[in-house]
Simulated scan of single mutants.
Amino acid sequence: MIDERYRRNDEAAVAAQLGREPRGIRRTAYRCPCGLPAVIETAPRLPDGTPFPTLFYLTCPKAASAIGTLEGSGAMRGMQERLAADPDLKAEYAAAHDDYLRRRDEAAREDGIEPLPEGMQSAGGMPERVKCLHALVAHELAVPGANPFGREALEALPDWWRSGPCVRAADDREGAQ
């Protein structure tokens, strides 16, 4: 079963990226140009029922490091100031928040689990704050065009994948003929 092999390989790669076993993976939401998962979609609730509001989770440590550098440069401060001053940008960011919540609720329905409570946070500070570029970039990578600040941050990043994969991918295709 080729799909099952790829799923296992992706989960092994994500475990190597995170340095721990991932929890609640639904699928790979974005694949890095190097071929490995870079964003996973997680279940709205972990297997034990604990709410997990982060639907799109950035796993690539090279991308995470580049985003951390961008956050450290003060980029979020300027984004937050523009969010407060620009009604069109505020509306676009609110639409990103609504998209995130809709997708998270849809994932819960697909998995046959209870959606998260009304008013539960989405990600990255949406819709009022610019708090975590990692989450906003993950949203934009998973759903291109969905998140204005994720898109802006992504455009400011270097090509993190150019130096090669962040981890060695497990490959159990050998001998699977």
Rank of each mutant, 00 (worst) to 15 (best):
D111C: 11
R103F: 02
L101R: 09
Y93M: 09
G68C: 10
R102L: 12
P117Y: 01
E21H: 09
G72Q: 13
L46A: 12
Q17Y: 02
E114L: 10
Q121W: 09
E92G: 13
I40S: 00
R20F: 02
D10M: 03
R8E: 08
R102P: 00
A123T: 05
Y57V: 11
A15G: 02
E41G: 01
Y100N: 06
A63K: 07
G68E: 06
T59F: 01
R104W: 03
D99V: 10
T42H: 00
D105C: 05
A63S: 12
A13R: 06
L36H: 11
A15R: 02
E110Q: 15
E106M: 13
S73L: 12
G68F: 13
R104C: 04
K62N: 14
Q121G: 04
A43N: 08
C60P: 04
L89E: 03
D111N: 09
L116E: 05
E81L: 11
G19V: 06
P33K: 05
E118W: 12
E92N: 12
A16W: 04
K62L: 15
Q121A: 11
S65L: 13
P115F: 08
P47V: 06
E21A: 15
L55D: 01
Y93L: 09
G112I: 07
R23V: 13
T54G: 01
L101K: 06
K90L: 11
A75E: 12
M120I: 13
P22F: 01
A13I: 12
G49Y: 02
A38C: 12
G49P: 00
E118V: 13
E106L: 14
I67W: 02
E110S: 13
E71M: 15
E21K: 14
G24D: 03
R77V: 07
P53K: 11
T42W: 00
D88T: 12
P51I: 08
R104T: 03
G74A: 12
A43D: 05
N9M: 14
I67Q: 05
L89T: 07
A16V: 07
A108L: 12
A107S: 15
T28Q: 02
T69N: 14
P33D: 01
Y100Q: 05
E41C: 01
V14E: 00
P47W: 05
T54Y: 00
M120W: 12
P51Q: 08
A66I: 07
G24Y: 04
P117D: 09
G119K: 00
A94S: 14
E11I: 15
D10Y: 00
I40C: 03
L46Q: 10
S122P: 02
L70P: 01
P115I: 13
R104Y: 01
P22C: 11
D111E: 15
R45E: 03
R102A: 15
R31L: 04
A123R: 08
L55A: 14
E118G: 07
E11N: 10
R20K: 15
